[in-house]
């Protein structure tokens, strides 16, 4: 098992494909989803989806566009209410919580949005500081120090005073990541963190995902179509297809699968490897 010497040895935009994560052993189950079903009008987006994740695990959620990956993440964060099923996250039954308990749980869960969702009326610094400031448990000096630390982690130490519309797409994604990390969440959902980004910036984002996971041993669910760049990050993959889980397992399991759809999907996702 080859161990990476330092996080800084991975140059900007380059995927460290040889690196195998030196992670702590996986811990207890932190996400347990059973029979998750969700309808939008007459359309069944998710039909009895099951998923279990352990502490410190990184799972790649893949599937064709419009299959319900983002909906799945929003259901797990409590932003949508499912029509049927159970969601247990960080030891809590999400659907049985009252408003106050759900708010409390959300401070332990981070979400990086596909379309950034930065508050456009605040500076970058205020965006990142906002969740911490709202909790009211830290002084302004502590908040400023932590904001600087989080922005430095995503290689954006000097953009605090800028407004979100002054940033590029990749920078917005990184600010979103810094904001999601400000309260040191135990579980982070990444909703297509590389959508619309060039390959170099995509690699950079995945390196950041990996670094975040390593530093805090957080559990991560990453949605992406870019299987090739997800390889150094994910422990295993879940393929959503036709509103159901079509496959769960490692890349090797996928390549050994006799299911033509699984095979086709993984091959297509790895076209750029050669």
């Amino acid at each position: 098992m080859k161990r990476r010497e330092s996080q800084e040895t991975v140059p900007y935009g380059e995927i460290d494909t040889t690196a195998i994560l030196d992670r702590k052993p996986l811990g207890d189950v932190v996400l347990e989803v059973h029979g998750l079903t969700h309808w939008f009008g007459d359309v069944c987006v998710l039909d009895g989806v099951d998923l279990t994740m352990r502490e410190g695990e990184v799972v790649g959620l893949i599937g064709p566009g419009g299959v319900g990956k983002s909906v799945f993440v929003k259901l797990c964060c409590g932003l949508l209410v499912p029509d049927a099923g159970e969601i247990h996250i960080l030891g809590k039954d999400l659907l049985a919580l009252d408003d106050k308990e759900r708010q409390e749980l959300r401070t332990r869960v981070g979400l990086v949005f596909q379309n950034y969702a930065l508050f456009d009326f605040m500076t970058v610094g205020d965006n990142v500081a906002f969740p911490m400031r709202q909790r009211g448990q830290a002084s302004e000096a502590e908040i400023a120090a932590k904001v600087q630390e989080r922005l430095s982690e995503v290689d954006l130490p000097k953009v605090q005073h800028l407004m979100p519309n002054e940033l590029s797409g990749g920078m917005k994604k990184r600010v979103g990541l810094a904001r999601a990390n400000i309260n040191d969440p135990e579980f982070i959902f990444f909703d297509d963190p590389t959508a619309g980004l060039d390959p170099v910036t995509s690699s950079k984002i995945f390196n950041l995902v990996r670094r975040t996971q390593e530093q805090r041993n957080s559990t991560c669910l990453v949605i992406s179509h870019d299987i090739d760049r997800m390889r150094p990050v994910c422990d295993r993959y879940v393929l959503l297809y036709d509103a159901r889980v079509r496959f769960q397992g490692t890349e090797q399991d996928a390549m050994a699968s006799s299911d033509p759809i699984v095979h086709e999907f993984f091959r297509a996702g790895m076209v750029g490897r050669a």
Binding site: K74, C77, G78, L79, D99, Q103, E104, R106, T107, V109, G110, L111, F113, N115, A117, L118, F119, D120, F130, P131, Q134, R135, R179
Partner: peptide, 18 residues
């Protein structure tokens, strides 16, 4: 429509209060 309200809720901030 830009998911900023969802972002507030995801950050444990109630849009009604805020």
């Amino acid at each position: 429509v830009t998911e900023q309200l969802d972002a507030l809720r995801a950050l444990a901030i109630d849009p009604i209060n805020h």
